[in-house]
């Protein structure tokens, strides 16, 4: 049931989460919004590899990947200028790195509306701007 009306439609979005069930859930939601899902990938290394090879419009990044902080990924994303949303169960607690803490955050568990709003806010500002420029 893709929502064609979503502004997120057509975005290439990478999902980084160490838990397959969670990743599948996110994947489903993204597909519903018409996004092209890249991944998901469970580890930092794999995420960095994908980020190196693929064009990404946005990333959903779990703060904790198999017990490791995903800060390196966040730093890399920031460096690349790729917008990303941190998905975490830590709620509003401070995360391991400013790159994570300062990024838009999606607290687990989340519903569809929340998911779309957060992602739209995070990913579409740039896009709209670039679209405007493109026109």
């Amino acid at each position: 049931m893709p929502k064609a009306s979503s502004r997120l439609a057509g975005l290439r979005v990478l999902v980084v989460d160490d838990e397959l069930l969670v990743a599948l859930h996110i994947e489903t939601l993204l597909e519903d919004l018409g996004c092209e899902v890249i991944g998901p990938v469970p580890t930092i290394e794999k995420a960095l590899a994908v980020m190196r090879d693929e064009h990404l419009d946005g990333v959903l990044l779990d703060a904790n990947l198999d017990g490791y902080s995903s800060a390196p990924v966040a730093a890399d994303l920031r460096a690349r200028g790729v917008p990303f949303v941190v998905v975490t169960g830590y709620g509003q607690l401070e995360l391991a790195s400013p790159a994570l803490t300062d990024a838009p955050r999606l607290s687990k568990p989340f519903n569809d509306t929340e998911f779309e709003a957060t992602l739209t806010a995070a990913f579409c500002a740039d896009r709209r701007a670039s679209t405007t420029i493109g026109q």
């Binding site: 838990e19 069930l21 969670v22 904790n64 169960g89 830590y90 568990p109």
Partner: peptide
């Protein structure tokens, strides 16, 4: 405490995912 929250919420998300996947 942080970890507990993380795990609980992660678990909840897993449950949510299970529910979604199963339902579909």
């Amino acid at each position: 405490i942080g970890e507990l929250s993380h795990r609980v919420k992660n678990t909840l998300t897993v449950v949510q995912s299970l529910a979604t996947q199963t339902l579909r």
